[in-house]
Design a protein around this nucleic acid. Structure first.
Length: 491
RNA sequence: CGGGGUGUAGCGUAGCCCGGUUAUCGCGCCACGUUUGGGACGUGGAGGCCGCAGGUUCGAAUCCUGCCACCCCGACCA
C-alpha cells in the first residue's frame, strides 16, 4: 500500500479518486464506467440502506421489485421522459450468443434478434406505471406507496467512482394518489425524509429547495431536492423527490373511480437517492489523512490496537480488550480487536485513519499497569489517556459527540460559503475565488439561467424552501425578482 | 461523443524520441531472525503475454495501424 494521499489543496479531484480506492470503498472494473463496490464500501452503503429503509417503512411505504428491462414501447409513452433519458440508454437487441463460424470466439447470434428491443432501466417510472394501471380501479386502491431497491444504468460519457457511474445502486419510490394535494404532500414528505437522513445520519447539512424548470426531472411538474456543499466549494445534489402530476397516469392510462363516481387520473410522485451519497459522504468529512466517517455509518466504530512484546503481554491485553469489547457490544457499538501480529501498531494506526474509523483504542503494558487506555479521535486527530473504568460510557458519549461535531463543522463550512451577491461582476469573482453557493436574485427565466451557465458554469442549484420574500433585481438582467436563489458549480 | 494524455510485477515507476545481451528502481509479497507506545530492520527469495490484436523488421516495451481501459478539458447528465 502506498502511503501518501494527494493533499486536497493540491488536487481535490485526485485526492477523491485516490481516497475512494485506497480506503477500499470501490474500484474501477473492466467495464467502462462501472465500478466494483468493495466490502468496506458496501458495508457503509448497507448502513445507509438500513436506515433509509426503516424511514420509508415508518412513513408507510412498502418494498417491491420491478424488472430490469423495459420494453422500448413503454419507454416512449411519456414524451419529456424520453427526451430526458433517450441519449443514455443501454438497449438489449439479442438474446443469444453462438460460436463464430471461423472459430474466432463467441459472437452475437443474428438469428436471435428480439422482436421488441428492451431498454435497461435508467429509472422505472414507465414499467411501474404500466403495472399500476392494473392495480388501480377505485379510490379505495389508493394510495400506492411503493419503493424498490435496484440498480439502474445510464450510459454516461464521463464517469467517476460513486459520483457518476454508468450503473449505480439506488432506491426509487413510486407513489400513486387520489388527489394532487396528497401527491404534493408525499413529494414534500420524502424531501424531508432525505434531509433528515442526510443531516442526522450522514452528518451532512443540506439545503431543501425546488429545482428550476431546466433542472427538473424529465416528466416531472416539480422537483424537490436536497443540495449539499462539498469541501471544494462545489454543490452536489444528494437526493430528489418529484411531483409528477398526472403525466404518467395519462401516458399509461391509470384511472380510478372517485368517491363521487367520476373517472379520474391518478396523481404521482417518485423519489430517489443513490450510491452517489457515498461520494457525498467522502467529500463532506474526509481529510488529507483519509476517510472520516460519522459513527452512524462507520462499519467499525471503535478499533482496539494492542501494543505488546511477546505472547504473554498479548494475552493479558487481549483479556482486557475482550472485557472492553463486551461492554461496547452490549451498548450496540461495533468494535474490532486487531491482534494481527503481522503489522506493527503504527502501521495499523495509519490504516484505520485512512479508513475513517471514528475511535481508536491503543492498549499496551503501560495501560495495563495504570488501568488506562489511549483513546484517539479520528475527526480531530487528538488523543488522550483515559481510565478503563467507565470506558464504554465515555465512548458511547464520544461517538455521539463526534457525530454532532462532524455536522456542526460541515454546517459551519457551508454557512461561510453561502455568499449574497448583487451584481454579476461580484458573482463571477466569488464563484472563481471562493466557490460555494451564491445567493442572488434571478428573473425567473430559463434564458437567463442558461446564459449564466454558459458564462460561468454555475447553475441554479435550487430555490430554497425557506427563501425570504425580498424585492431585488436579477443579478444578470436587472429585471425585478422577489427572492434569492442559490447558484453554484455542481457535481 | 470530440480534443489531449497515460497504460511496463499487487502499487508507484526507469527505459520508448534514436529498435539490438538476462527489462530498471522503490514499496509491497514469501522465508528466517531481531523487533513492536505513529507506516521497523537485516539476510535470502519469488513474482513480467511491457494494456489487447495486427503490421513493419533478421530482431519490437521501443516504430506503424486498430481496439480496450483510465485521467484531464469540452458537450451531456444524478
Amino acid at each position: 500500500m502506498s502511503k501518501n494521499l494527494t493533499k486536497r489543496s493540491e488536487d481535490y479531484s485526485k485526492w477523491y479518486n485516490e481516497l475512494v480506492v485506497k480506503a477500499d470503498l470501490a474500484e474501477n472494473s473492466g467495464v467502462r464506467g462501472c465500478m466494483v463496490i468493495k466490502p468496506y464500501g458496501y458495508a457503509i452503503w448497507e448502513k445507509m440502506q438500513a436506515e433509509l429503509d426503516r424511514m420509508f417503512k415508518e412513513t408507510g411505504h412498502q418494498n417491491a421489485y420491478f424488472p430490469l428491462f423495459i420494453p422500448k414501447s413503454y419507454f416512449s409513452k411519456e414524451a419529456s421522459h424520453v427526451d430526458g433519458f433517450a441519449k443514455e440508454c443501454a438497449v438489449v437487441t439479442h438474446y443469444r450468443l453462438k460460436n463464430a463460424e471461423d472459430g474466432s470466439g463467441i459472437v452475437v447470434d443474428e438469428d436471435a434478434k428480439l422482436e421488441e428491443e428492451l431498454i435497461v432501466r435508467p429509472t422505472s417510472e414507465t414499467i411501474i406505471w404500466d403495472t399500476y394501471r392494473k392495480w388501480v380501479q377505485s379510490y379505495r386502491d389508493l394510495p400506492i406507496l411503493v419503493n424498490q431497491w435496484a440498480n439502474v444504468v445510464r450510459w454516461e460519457m464521463r464517469t467517476r467512482l460513486f459520483l457518476r457511474t454508468a450503473e449505480f445502486l439506488w432506491q426509487e419510490g413510486h407513489t400513486a394518489h387520489a388527489t394532487k394535494k396528497e401527491a404534493l404532500a408525499e413529494a414534500e414528505l420524502m424531501q424531508n425524509v432525505y434531509a433528515d437522513f442526510a443531516e442526522n445520519f450522514m452528518a451532512m447539512p443540506v439545503i431543501k429547495g425546488t429545482k428550476t424548470e431546466s433542472e427538473r426531472f424529465a416528466g416531472a411538474l416539480e422537483t424537490y431536492a436536497i443540495e449539499a456543499l462539498m469541501q471544494d466549494g462545489k454543490a452536489l445534489q444528494a437526493g430528489t423527490s418529484h411531483f409528477l402530476g398526472q403525466n404518467f397516469a395519462k401516458a399509461f392510462d391509470v384511472k380510478f373511480t372517485s368517491k363521487e363516481g367520476k373517472l379520474e387520473y391518478v396523481w404521482a410522485t417518485s423519489w430517489g437517492v443513490s450510491t452517489r451519497l457515498m461520494g457525498a459522504l467522502v467529500m463532506t468529512h474526509s481529510d488529507d489523512q483519509g476517510l472520516v466517517l460519522p459513527p452512524n455509518l462507520a462499519p467499525i466504530q471503535v478499533v482496539i490496537v494492542p501494543i505488546y512484546r511477546g505472547e504473554e503481554q498479548l494475552e493479558i491485553i487481549a483479556e482486557k480488550a475482550k472485557e472492553i469489547m463486551d461492554d461496547l457490544k452490549a451498548k450496540g457499538i461495533s468494535v474490532k480487536f486487531d491482534d494481527r501480529d503481522t503489522y506493527k501498531p503504527g502501521w495499523k494506526f495509519a490504516e484505520y485513519e485512512l479508513k475513517g474509523v471514528p475511535l481508536r483504542i491503543a492498549m499496551g503494558p503501560r495501560d495495563i499497569e495504570n488501568g488506562t487506555v489511549e483513546l484517539a479521535r479520528r475527526d480531530t486527530l487528538t488523543k488522550e489517556v483515559v481510565k478503563q473504568e467507565g470506558l464504554s460510557d465515555s465512548i458511547d458519549n464520544l461517538l455521539e459527540e463526534i457525530q454532532k461535531s462532524l455536522f456542526v463543522k460541515a454546517k459551519a463550512y457551508r454557512e461561510t460559503h453561502i455568499t449574497k451577491v448583487d451584481n454579476f461582476e461580484e458573482f463571477k469573482e466569488v464563484l472563481e475565488n471562493k466557490g460555494g453557493f451564491i445567493s442572488a436574485h434571478w428573473d425567473g427565466t430559463s434564458e437567463t439561467e442558461q446564459r449564466i451557465k454558459e458564462l460561468t458554469k454555475a447553475t441554479i442549484r435550487c430555490i430554497p424552501n425557506d427563501a425570504e420574500i425580498e424585492e431585488g433585481k436579477c443579478v444578470f438582467t436587472g429585471k425585478p425578482s422577489h427572492k434569492r436563489v442559490l447558484f453554484a458549480k455542481a457535481y
